[in-house]
Simulated scan of single mutants.
Amino acid sequence: MEPFKFKKLEIEQEGSWLKRLLKSPHFKKTIVYAAIGASIGYVLFIIEQDAAKLILWSDTAMQNVLMGMAFGVFITNSPCARGKC
C-alpha cells in the first residue's frame, strides 16, 4: 500500500483586518447608506423648522442626523439585507 502524499498548502497574508475591512464592498456600501441617511435626517430637520427662526444646527439636528445614520447602517447590516431572513 502506497503512503499518502500531501501537497504543501501555501497561505499568504492578506493584510491586516482593518485593510480588509476598509476595502470590502459591504463596508463601502454601509458608509454610503449611512451618509445618505444622515443627509436625509438633516434635510428633515431643516424642513420641520419655522422659516422665521432658521437654525442651522442644534441638538435636534444632531439627533436627526444620528437617527438617519442608524437607519442607513441598519438597512445594510440587517439580516434581511444579507439574505438570512
Score class of each variant (00 low, 15 high):
F74K: 00
N77F: 07
P3G: 09
W17Y: 06
H26T: 13
G37I: 09
R82V: 01
V73G: 01
K5A: 08
E48C: 10
E14P: 01
C85D: 06
K8M: 13
L66F: 09
A61Y: 01
M69T: 07
M1T: 11
L56C: 01
G41L: 00
I31Y: 06
D50Y: 15
E12D: 12
L22P: 00
R20E: 02
A61K: 03
F4T: 13
T30M: 15
K7I: 11
I47K: 08
S58V: 01
K23N: 12
I75D: 00
S58Q: 09
G37K: 07
K19D: 01
A51G: 03
I11M: 05
V43S: 13
I55R: 13
I31L: 15
A35K: 09
E2F: 14
L66K: 03
F4Q: 14
A70G: 04
A70M: 12
V32Y: 10
K28N: 14
M69G: 08
K5Q: 14
L66N: 03
Q49F: 07
L54K: 14
T60P: 01
E10D: 08
S78K: 04
T30E: 06
E12R: 08
V73Q: 07
S24T: 08
Y42D: 04
Q13K: 09
S24K: 09
G83S: 02
L66H: 03
Q63D: 07
I31D: 02
